[in-house]
């Protein structure tokens, strides 16, 4: 299995993401700088990591989403390559238009940095196949702009299509309908504010995130 982690100026979860993917797949991801214009051949998973790309200038994820590499990521996603965006990566994916809606300043204004309980809403996706629907998991969050917003029609549509992957099981940031993570129409793009890559080994205090990477990698290897 071949994977890539995108690195922007200001990314800071890129190495955590690489470690999580390597732990699950046994292969180091390619680290891809934002100026790259192509995704290397054969890459079947691209991770857009957390951080503060371009200092969050203008809006979180706004500058990164217009960087050369994101045009390539968008094209790859449209071909069916799997894309996982976490935290700032989720913001980048909404700004790119790969996922609907927007992530706004947390309703409580404060930066939120703690473990939160999530409910798995969809266990049929490639990202969530090793979870049970309705199961509660705990992932860390660390964000200032995680307040998911979309208009009512969009919310109804993504709910109806089973595209809400994770929902907060407690109040975190004011997100519409407590949405923590959503899938694209094709099910090959997941964006989420909580950090599965920070919960993959016992030293993290919690391994709930490991199943996301394991399930993804097993699925990709089975289809290869």
């Amino acid at each position: 299995m071949k994977s890539a982690v995108i690195v922007f100026p200001g990314s800071n979860c890129d190495r955590d993401m690489a470690v999580a993917i390597e732990q699950a797949s046994g292969t180091k991801p390619i680290m891809l700088w934002h100026r790259e214009t192509e995704i290397p051949d054969g890459v079947d998973l691209i991770a857009v990591p957390g951080g503060f790309s371009y200092g969050d200038y203008l809006r979180s994820g706004a500058m990164a989403s217009r960087s050369p590499v994101m045009a390539a990521v968008k094209a790859a996603a449209e071909r069916g390559v799997f894309v996982l965006g976490v935290c700032n990566g989720f913001q980048v994916l909404t700004e790119t238009g790969l996922l609907p809606g927007a992530l706004m300043r947390n309703a409580g204004i404060h930066f939120v940095c703690r473990d939160v309980a999530l409910t798995v809403e969809n266990s049929q996706s490639a990202f969530t196949s090793l979870y049970e629907k309705g199961e509660q998991v705990v992932f860390p969050v660390a964000h200032h702009d995680g307040n998911y917003f979309a208009d009512t029609a969009t919310l109804d549509r993504i709910e109806g299509e089973g595209r809400v992957a994770f929902r907060y099981a407690e109040a975190v940031n004011g997100s519409a309908r407590d949405i923590a993570g959503i899938l694209n129409e094709g099910g090959n793009v997941l964006g989420m504010m909580p950090h599965p890559e920070r919960a993959v080994e016992p030293a993290h205090g919690n391994v709930d995130g490991a199943r996301m990477f394991k399930g993804l990698v097993e699925g990709l290897m089975a289809s290869a």
């Binding site: 203008l58 706004a62 217009r66 609907p100 917003f149």
Partner: peptide
């Protein structure tokens, strides 16, 4: 519309 504003919000 392409950069300065996010017309979703």
């Amino acid at each position: 519309s392409k950069l300065l504003a996010n017309t979703v919000i």
